[in-house]
């Protein structure tokens, strides 16, 4: 399986299964797993990263699809590409994740960039991350002889980080069978990094609204109080009725402000410019949150 090193004596391994991959990872300390490489190669080219060895995950076909569990959970392979998540069959399952995948970049990037890579890179503006936070997704981490599940948000915040020798294999997402929205603002029409994004999912079974704001902080933020407040403003029983108004428009506006207030701190501490920047970001988040809930309840 090993290929001879090139000029700088680098090793590239191409395991065909998760077991082979975790074995390789255990056997080669300092090896870096790589899937789409859209973030990794940028770091390598810029000289920020010189991995001792690479473990290519592209041949592990089981991780490139998804399966169902217990009727209410989708188990997504870490190797799912953004392009695959954007397809209609996936979009019918988890619409917000499909929306996030669609806006994540130009087609060349979406064709190779993966869900697992998005989590592992944990960039503040990673588009799928607020959706996973809103869905309260959990990640399966495999290592030689052991497997454990960790909430994705714990991985992202570093509360429970990836340990040496662990490989991100699966992402568990609840199937909610209700509207979900992902909105992002980047100031342009073409693909771009989000200035702010909002993911919002409805959970009618539990009469809950879950929301996460991306790109405004190092990790997606959950406005928990705003979520529980707005869940009480929704006329859940009227769902499905023709022409029903599920929420007072004033509550939509208030929800936007509530979310923005919770996720973007008051600026000003770093001078006037920072204050103005923060005010703009709050406005943007407020608009996105208001529109997201409005669309979900339409």
């Amino acid at each position: 399986m090993e290929h001879g090193g090139n000029l700088v004596n680098r090793t590239i391994m191409l395991p065909a299964s998760v077991d082979e991959a975790v074995e390789a990872l255990a056997a080669t300390p300092g090896a870096v797993p790589v899937a789409g490489a859209t973030d990794l190669m940028e770091a390598v080219n810029a000289g920020r990263l010189r991995p001792a060895a690479l473990i290519g995950l592209g041949r592990i076909t089981e991780l490139r699809g998804w399966r169902y569990e217990d009727g209410g959970t989708a188990v997504l392979g870490a190797g799912l590409t953004h392009a695959r998540m954007d397809r209609p069959d996936f979009a019918a399952l988890i619409p917000a994740l499909a929306d996030a995948a669609r806006t994540a970049g130009p087609p060349q990037v979406r064709n190779v960039g993966t869900l697992g890579g998005n989590i592992a890179t944990a960039a503040p503006a990673g588009d799928t991350l607020p959706v996973l936070a809103a869905l309260e997704a959990t990640a399966t981490l495999a290592r030689a002889g052991a497997v454990r599940d960790v909430p994705v948000s714990h991985l992202l915040t570093g509360l429970d980080p990836l340990r040496p020798g662990e490989l991100l294999t699966w992402v568990r997402v609840p199937l909610l069978h209700a509207p979900q929205v992902f909105l992002k603002s980047s100031g342009r029409s073409g693909p771009a990094r989000a200035a702010a994004s909002v993911a919002l999912v409805l959970d009618p079974a539990r009469r809950g609204v879950r929301c996460a704001v991306g790109a405004v902080a190092p990790v997606p933020l959950r406005p928990l109080e705003a979520e529980s407040w707005v869940a009480g403003c929704i006329d859940w029983d009227a769902r499905g009725a023709e022409g029903a108004v599920l929420i007072d428009p004033a509550a939509l506006v208030a929800f936007g402000e509530y979310v923005a207030g919770a996720c973007v701190p008051e600026g000003g501490a770093h001078g006037e410019g920072a204050g103005a920047d923060a005010a703009r970001l709050r406005r943007t988040v407020a608009v996105l949150a208001r529109r997201a809930l409005g669309r979900a309840l339409k």
């Binding site: 929306d99 669609r102 806006t103 909105l183 992002k184 603002s185 980047s186 342009r188 029409s189 073409g190 693909p191 608009v287 996105l288 529109r291």
Partner: peptide, 15 residues
């Protein structure tokens, strides 16, 4: 209709 913000963006016709 391609709204400002692009396909899959946050554009709202009312605004």
């Amino acid at each position: 209709w391609l709204l400002p913000g692009g396909p899959g963006g946050a554009g709202d016709p009312a605004a």
